[in-house]
């Protein structure tokens, strides 16, 4: 008997499962309906309240935020960030259409390489899929234009976030992803969904907090305030 059949038989025996007890139907229904469990009050904001909460929560977990009025201001904010940390004007950028339409050529000194991260990349620039106000969390998905390594390898991770992408709760973000995938007719799920809440850290040495364990040491959010 295969290990699979053995284990499943063992589970059924322990549970006293019998055919026709409706378990399969209950499970099918439960999986299909995406029913929400209660969401805390702080996850129920939207609009300006969600924006405000997102900023407060993200700063609490040591992300930094640079608000800009429009897409055209993003290159300037990126260059200013690099200068403020004495970093070379060179970034690895996600080859995603949402970033391609930003007028990077306004800043000709900024050197841009598009693609997945290389081990020696110091700074990356990526878009996000959504942001969650509840805990100041960014949601990034893998795809042809959004390689995962950009979120992990460089010391500094800069994300470009539009205020309209901020939702109240994780559940709101999942619903958005489901809708987007349906629209595109792609596979159910991207290979990876990264929820990122502040820069990398560890407390493994005597519970003392140290930033930048393996992932980025700093997480910087350029926030385009495109709310109506």
């Amino acid at each position: 008997m295969s290990a699979r059949d053995d284990i499943l038989d063992g589970v059924r025996w322990s549970l006293g499962r019998s055919d026709g007890d409706g378990a399969a139907e209950r499970v099918r229904q439960r999986i299909g309906e995406h029913r929400r469990n209660p969401i805390p009050t702080r996850g129920q904001d939207n609009g300006a309240a969600a924006l405000k909460r997102f900023i407060a929560e993200a700063e609490m977990v040591s992300a930094t935020i640079a608000p800009v009025a429009a897409e055209a201001d993003v290159p300037g904010a990126v260059v200013a960030y690099l200068a403020s940390h004495n970093l070379p004007a060179r970034v690895a950028m996600a080859p995603d259409p949402s970033l391609a339409r930003i007028p990077w050529s306004d800043r000709p000194t900024l050197e841009i390489r598009r693609g997945a991260a290389h081990p020696d990349d110091q700074v990356s620039v990526t878009p996000v899929f959504a942001a969650i106000a509840e805990t100041g969390t960014l949601m990034l998905i893998s795809g042809p234009g959004t390689p995962t390594t950009l979120n992990l390898l460089p010391d500094d991770h800069i994300v470009v976030l539009r205020a309209s992408q901020i939702v109240g709760s994780y559940e709101d973000a999942w619903d958005q992803l489901r809708r987007a995938r349906e629209r595109d007719g792609t596979l159910d799920m991207p290979r990876t969904v990264n929820f990122i809440t502040g820069p990398s850290r560890t407390g493994d040495i005597e519970q003392k907090l140290v930033m930048g364990a393996h992932g980025p040491r700093r997480l910087h959010i350029v926030l385009i305030e495109d709310h109506g």
Binding site: E57, M60, V61, T135, T137, S142, G143, P144, L187, D188, M189, P190, R191, T192, V193, N194, F195, I196, T197, G198, P199, S200, R201, G215
Partner: peptide
């Protein structure tokens, strides 16, 4: 409130 990285993985690279 939430860990820094919550990562949802589904299958190999596309």
């Amino acid at each position: 409130e939430y860990s820094v990285y919550t990562t949802v993985s589904t299958g190999p690279r596309r």
